[in-house]
Amino acid sequence: MFSRTENFSQYIRLYPVVTVLLALNIIIALLGYIPGLGDHIYFGGMGINFLIAEGEWWRLFTPMFLHAGFSHLLFNMFSLFVFGPELEKIAGKARFLTIYLLAGVFGNIATYFLQPLDYASVGASGAIFGIFGAFGALVYYTKHILPQLRQIIVPIIAIGVIMTFLQSNINVTAHIAGLIVGFLIGLSYFHPKRIISWKKR
């Protein structure tokens, strides 16, 4: 289910939303290495709570396309590359994009309200955890139909949550909020009738 066997052109054709999100994050990361421009992009889009409080509301959206270094980008984009396609295929392009963006935005909103004013963060992790949350909702509806999905997703979610609290410099608020939002949206999208039709394809 989560093993990617498509070639490059097939991947782009089958999963256009995931492809665009991957491209945006990678391009923005590469632009970040350009002297002057990189700092402008990074600090202009970082989620800085006291600047959000002063009216820079775009910072509730832009942090999900910025990353603090190569390893941060690699982890999030690898997760999107592996887990995003299956959710895009099941949910559809518009619904997948809705899950991804709303989980990311609400993760940043939760960070704004629950963290101090001097708190700053970047990363797509809230949106990535939204994908995991949506799969959690799918598991909830299909636990007796697709036990193999539960065997894969539940440990991934559990490990992700545990690592969130064990690692340093992690926006715990965005991770947990993204996970919850993804789960709630998934509950509304993945009605059992939808799953049955998907199984028949």
Rank of each mutant, 00 (worst) to 15 (best):
T142S: 15
Y141R: 15
N108M: 05
G160A: 11
S71M: 13
G69F: 09
H72A: 11
N76S: 14
I52A: 08
G126I: 04
H72K: 04
N49E: 10
I159N: 03
Q167S: 12
Q151A: 13
R150C: 05
V154K: 03
I109Q: 04
F132R: 01
A120E: 07
L102Q: 03
D39L: 06
G38I: 08
Q115T: 15
S79W: 12
V105M: 14
F135Q: 05
P116D: 13
F106M: 13
D39W: 04
S121P: 02
N108E: 09
M77Y: 07
M77S: 08
A53G: 14
V82N: 04
Y100L: 11
L117I: 14
P147Q: 10
F81I: 03
A91F: 12
I152L: 14
E88N: 07
Y100H: 13
E86R: 11
E88I: 05
A134W: 09
G160P: 00
L101H: 06
F81A: 10
Y42V: 04
A91G: 11
A120M: 06
G55Q: 05
I52W: 06
F135A: 03
A158V: 15
N108I: 03
A158M: 14
I153M: 12
F81W: 15
G36K: 02
L114S: 14
I152S: 11
L80G: 01
P155T: 07
I157T: 05
L51W: 11
I157H: 04
V139D: 00
L51R: 15
G45H: 02
L97Q: 09
T142Q: 10
A120K: 00
S121G: 08
F43W: 13
G55A: 08
V139T: 02
I48C: 06
L37P: 02
L80C: 05
G133I: 05
N108W: 03
I156W: 09
P63S: 00
F75N: 10
Q167D: 09
G36E: 05
V122F: 08
M77F: 07
I99A: 05
I99L: 08
R59K: 13
P147F: 10
L74A: 13
F132H: 03
S71N: 09
A134T: 06
I41L: 15
G126E: 00
E88Y: 09
E88W: 05
L117Q: 15
V105Y: 01
E54M: 13
N76Y: 07
F135R: 04
F70A: 10
G126W: 05
G38L: 07
R95I: 03
F96R: 12
F96I: 12
L74D: 02
P63N: 00
I48F: 14
F43A: 00
Y42D: 01
L66Q: 04
E54T: 12
I152M: 13
K143P: 00
L80V: 12
M46D: 00
F83E: 01
L97N: 10
S71T: 12
F50P: 01
G107L: 04
F70C: 02
I90A: 08
